[in-house]
Design a protein around this nucleic acid. Structure first.
Ligand SMILES: [Mn+2]
Ligand SMILES: [Mn+2]
Ligand SMILES: [Zn+2]
Ligand SMILES: [Zn+2]
Lengths: 166, 166
DNA sequence: AACAACTTGCAAATGACTTGCAAAACCATG
DNA sequence: CATGGTTTTGCAAGTCATTTGCAAGTTGTT
């Protein structure tokens, strides 16, 4: 989602990254480009099978690893349960995430402050930062309001929303 | 590490949190207070067994969950591999982490910018943030310098260092 | 077309974490 | 400080997302 309209095709991106062009890879890239949400391997597998029925789940995993290394997809962790890996297309603006622990909604946001932390760190420590995992968790506005109930279960994954801080 | 010298004993903390005082819990809290690093369940189990040989790994897991809920320990995720949960005592200043992908060293740092992002988010989205997972990853100064080699393996966990940004 | 290098499907394996259950420990209460 | 309801523990057996070995199938290159 929120993709640059004039972006290279999946094939072009693969070749530019020096990776072989295979049907599973092209398909995974396209599925992530088209996705409105952050997808995990299982869900990508489900969607991929609709177009490439012979694809195997392990192929999905292996290729997500390849695409991640090649910088074509981004891996994310959400909510307090980091036991599942989610992915999104790398062809979008840098952004961060807030996840509602109650309803599972994901809010994407931008802010220059994280980049500031990053450059401060690099300048003061001499480190070379390659990746940042930034995720906030809590209750979304709706769930915070509806906090009259005592529930705390059903965390269904939902579509994302994107905002810009200040 | 970096603990307040006049902090309550593990027993006192447990009682204050309304939790039962048991040998495994007291021991886990003390081990985390004493630790120079961030520990996972397996390592805590290893250390705990030295003083309480009958303790079981599942007891370690169950109690870490209890202590986390009670706010007595903090759970962390490091490096690109979030498949392991690490813990540290909650009795310390709020801080964030940088992990070296090459040597595994963890650098702890403080910065008011993350809290700023947090309040901005709460103010502009009306959300109630309960938790933040902030971790930067890359090459530490030493490993970045030694980048002449082509290696990229052995990621041994190491002690942490704490710094203050600017 | 011919081949070496890389990928895939399939089935089996990993490994961190969880769970069911009966016995043991905790902590009011009397 | 004995009693007993409630919680916790040890042990053994799961769970489940992700990984891996291998033979067969593809890809990109000469
Ligand atoms: Mn996103
Ligand atoms: Mn720390
Ligand atoms: Zn919500
Ligand atoms: Zn290093």
């Amino acid at each position: 989602m929120n993709l640059n309209p004039s972006m290279p095709t999946p094939e072009e991106r693969l070749r530019a990254a020096g990776q072989r062009v295979t049907a599973p890879r092209v398909l995974l890239i396209r599925l992530l480009d088209e996705a409105e949400e952050h997808l995990d391997a299982e869900e990508l597998y489900r969607r991929a099978r609709r177009e490439l029925p012979s694809i195997n789940l392990s192929t999905v995993y292996r290729n997500l690893a390849v695409l991640k290394e090649a910088g074509l997809v981004e891996q994310r962790y959400f909510a307090r349960d980091h036991s599942r890996e989610y992915f999104e297309s790398a062809v979008q603006e840098e952004h961060y995430h807030f996840t509602c622990l109650s309803c599972g909604k994901v809010v994407e946001f931008e802010t220059p402050l994280i980049a500031k932390v990053r450059v401060d760190l690099e300048a003061q420590l001499g480190v070379d930062i390659r990746h940042a995992c930034i995720c906030f968790e809590g209750l979304c506005a709706e769930c915070a309001a509806a906090e009259k109930r005592t529930d705390a279960d059903g965390v269904a994954p939902q579509k994302s929303v994107r905002i810009q801080l200040s």
